[in-house]
Design a protein around this nucleic acid. Structure first.
Lengths: 195, 195
DNA sequence: CCTACCGATCGGTAGG
DNA sequence: CCTACCGATCGGTAGG
């Protein structure tokens, strides 16, 4: 029984992982449950012994990684680091998420529009809170005189967009190692903030 | 006859414009021809008096704006500007495209995956050429000693990604004016390049 | 986990 | 430009 449960859970994990790769490649609406079943090695109907619906898979992928981002950001709050260090940690975290959990991260940033209510509102609310907290850290750094007088909103946008840009890099022939890429991104983005 | 032609052309233009907005909002696969017909004020079948297929609309949107980007980039080549000025012009051009032709620009950067062959290969080839030319300009600026020793690939990625990030800004409540936004982006990104 | 199948919706056509 | 309709495919269910 415990074994059966575990088997079932891991099969669900397999389905979710394959779905994530497929949603990233084709986009959520263009990825069909029949294609997914083929990749997993089942008939389409059999998928429904493991998952409730196509939407449920999308929800699990997105909220799992969104939650990890939130947890990391909260760990930064009031931990005594300088604002610059906090932002550096945030950049490194996002770059690592993008590189080590590529499919999930891309699905979150590109496919969240296909969430249905109430999940859609839930997600956009979480995201609004996230970027506001991030802007607060930058604002703090500016009034601390740790950072140049950048507009927090513009800095936040540039940082998150640049991480997102790694999607293009990951897809293309990558002659640069991931560590070099991470350090280059951090340098470029942090140098834009430092006095 | 000339009038009929013009009327037909403008109706096609209307369809394309509404389609662009719809493709951006919902994504290409999730936007149905019936929804589009509703917005235009026709029956779905009647759309096909003006356009050949759903795919054709996507192709026209994407290659029209991609072509404008290519023309601008070619106008920079060997025009006597410094490398920094060339990149500043490129950034301003992209920011303006994003802000003044928001739907088309977003469809190009987000929906190109849904092009079918041979258009898909055509597009990715054009894009590869584009980023290579852009990297050449940055490389030139670095060996000129005009720019700091950045990696051209990383700088290119950061610049294009940051422009893309304006999609998020455009969607949200925009308290910042477009001119201020453009100048802030240019300053941030150009300062990262200057010595 | 499969076979068989559902209603809904898709892009697109015929014919007027 | 519409009515009527096509075959294909979609997400998902019943029943075993």
């Amino acid at each position: 029984m415990a074994t059966a449960q575990r088997k079932k859970a891991s099969k669900k994990e397999l389905i979710t992982r394959k779905a994530s790769a497929m949603f990233r490649e084709k986009g959520f609406p263009a990825a069909s449950m029949r294609d997914l079943a083929d990749v997993v090695g089942l008939e389409a109907a059999s998928l429904y012994n493991h998952i409730k619906s196509k939407s449920e898979i999308l929800q699990e992928i997105i909220f799992r990684i969104a939650n990890d981002c939130n947890v990391h950001l909260e760990s930064l709050e009031g931990n005594g680091m300088t604002s610059i260090k906090k932002i550096e940690s945030l950049i490194r975290f996002h770059v690592q998420m993008m590189l080590t959990r590529f499919d999930d991260y891309c699905v979150m940033i590109n496919e969240w529009i296909h969430l249905t209510e109430p999940y859609l509102t839930n997600f956009t609310t979480q995201r609004r809170n996230y970027v506001q907290k991030m802007e607060s850290i930058i604002e703090e750094g500016v009034s601390n005189k740790e950072m140049r007088p950048v507009m927090p909103y513009v800095a936040m946008l540039t940082i998150l967009s640049s991480v997102r840009g790694l999607e293009f890099w990951h897809r293309s022939a990558k002659k640069i190692s991931t560590q070099v890429m991470e350090d280059n991104m951090v340098n470029y983005l942090i140098n834009g903030l430092k006095k």
